Computed example of a mutant assay.
Amino acid sequence: MTTTQIIAAIISSSVLSAALTSFVNWILHNSNYKKDYYKKILEKRFNAFEKVQDLAGKLSFQTQLDNSVIPTIFFDKEYYDQFIISLATTIDSSFWLDISTSSKLTELNVFLLNNITNNINYDWDIDQMNQKYNELGTNHLENIRLFRQEIQTLVNKELKNLHKVERFFNNKIELEKSFPVLKSKFTNSN
């Protein structure tokens, strides 16, 4: 073997080794990128499900009135308003939830709008409003209990598949249900 052949063999093996190393590094980088992407998606989904879990917890608390038990969210205007804000922030994160859970949250929102908010006259004094919240809470205790159970069931079901990111995005193609919104019984002077 001549000196030229030896040098050519060393250079070609060095070039081949560098190319192979670059190719393996590129594959590892792409693999890590995909893993990091999935981690970020999972983190967003976990955060959304934590909000739903918190919301279900708020629906489960009950308060004893003189003659009935009501969900605590209907104790007074302040509790109800805090719950509505919590529901709104949860719905804001609903993109990261499966379609069934997202639809159930929308259904709960429309139910509360149609059956609670639209039955409150904001021209009433605070005591009248709170009394009406209590009355509506008594009337809708079972509905709220069912919403909480359904939401909890959906969350438990979805948590089993939370890590299946591709399946999650494939299922996002489904259309969300729509729910009719009714007009308020009152026109406010504000």
Rank of each mutant, 00 (worst) to 15 (best):
W96H: 13
N109V: 02
D92S: 15
I99W: 03
L113E: 13
K104T: 11
N114V: 03
L65V: 10
Y80P: 02
F74M: 11
D66E: 14
L113D: 07
N119W: 04
P71H: 15
E78C: 04
K77N: 13
T72D: 04
L112S: 06
S100P: 11
T72H: 06
I91Q: 15
F75E: 12
V69S: 06
E78H: 12
Y79L: 07
S68Q: 13
N67G: 08
T89S: 14
F95T: 10
S100A: 12
V69M: 02
L112D: 00
T63M: 13
L105F: 04
F75A: 12
N115C: 07
L105S: 04
S102T: 09
I85G: 04
D98A: 04
K77F: 10
I70L: 02
E78I: 12
S103T: 10
F83A: 02
I73F: 01
E78T: 12
D66Y: 11
L105W: 03
Y80W: 01
F75Y: 14
T106I: 13
T117W: 00
S100C: 10
N109D: 15
I91P: 01
I91V: 08
F83Y: 01
K77Y: 11
N109G: 08
S94M: 05
I99H: 01
F111Y: 14
A88F: 11
I116D: 05
S100W: 13
Y79T: 12
I85R: 14
K104H: 10
I116F: 11
I84K: 15
Y79C: 09
Q64D: 13
N118W: 01
K104R: 14
L112H: 08
D98I: 10
N119T: 02
D92R: 13
D76V: 00
